[in-house]
Design a protein around this nucleic acid. Structure first.
Lengths: 115, 115
DNA sequence: GTTCGTTTTTACAAGATTTTTACAACCTGG
DNA sequence: CCAGGTTGTAAAAATCTTGTAAAAACGAAC
């Protein structure tokens, strides 16, 4: 059963792969990634993540979520910050990689490079 | 009847061979290897292994499974840990050896190694 | 720019889990 | 019964996961 898939990242209940390389996530890391990616594009408030995954009631003072986001981002490598975005003061959001648009040269070449 | 086969390992009900050398496994070792390899790629929880192979009911405190995994890994030699993987906090998983992908040199060789 | 609150980053420690070693009990065939 | 291999357990060592603390970096508002 698949949770999320795109060109680079594949998230299943059985495994997570980035460019076909399997990532070994811990239980909490996986829960976090699953919850975020299941709500692709939506910002999930910190309090919701902390309550759903950790069972912390709102108001608990902790940096646990942030550290887990960091560990997850690091395992996602180069695109960690693009997949898991910080919404300042609110929470985090999972976003599909922005497909790099091909470079199209205008013609005639009336633009300048470097100067 | 064959249970599992790949480039190095061959598991049949009658014999287990690694690189064409026959391994002598004990009954429990064989049951363990068979059950794991029959579910290649799937993580089998400790409780399931302990119940299926040993008949232990869930909750039994024992290290028996771990020790048998160790003995099995040792007999599988160099690749023991690659064939039988530990899924921390869950159980064990049998995995086919990761085929080393051939090194393809880009052309022309415009990249740098070491500097 | 300053200030205050938030997030990131690093390092550490506690607790849980797994690995490793050694040993004793148990079969089982002869 | 004996010898040899098999199986389970105990305990120490190693490893992994997780949460927290504290400093640094960052963001928004003034």
């Amino acid at each position: 059963m698949q949770i999320f898939h795109d060109e680079h990242l594949s998230i299943d209940w059985s495994a997570v792969r980035f460019d076909n390389v399997k990532l070994t996530l811990t239980r909490k890391e996986f829960e976090l990634l699953a919850m975020l990616s299941q709500n692709e594009g939506e910002t999930i408030p910190r309090a919701v993540l902390l309550e759903t995954i950790w069972g912390y009631c709102s108001g608990t003072r902790t940096r646990t979520l942030d550290v887990h986001v960091r560990r997850l981002r690091r395992k996602l490598g180069q695109y960690g910050e693009e997949y898991i975005q910080t919404i300042f003061g609110v929470g985090y959001r999972f976003a599909r990689l922005r497909a790099p648009r091909p470079l199209v040269m205008p013609s005639p070449a009336t633009y300048a490079i470097g100067a």
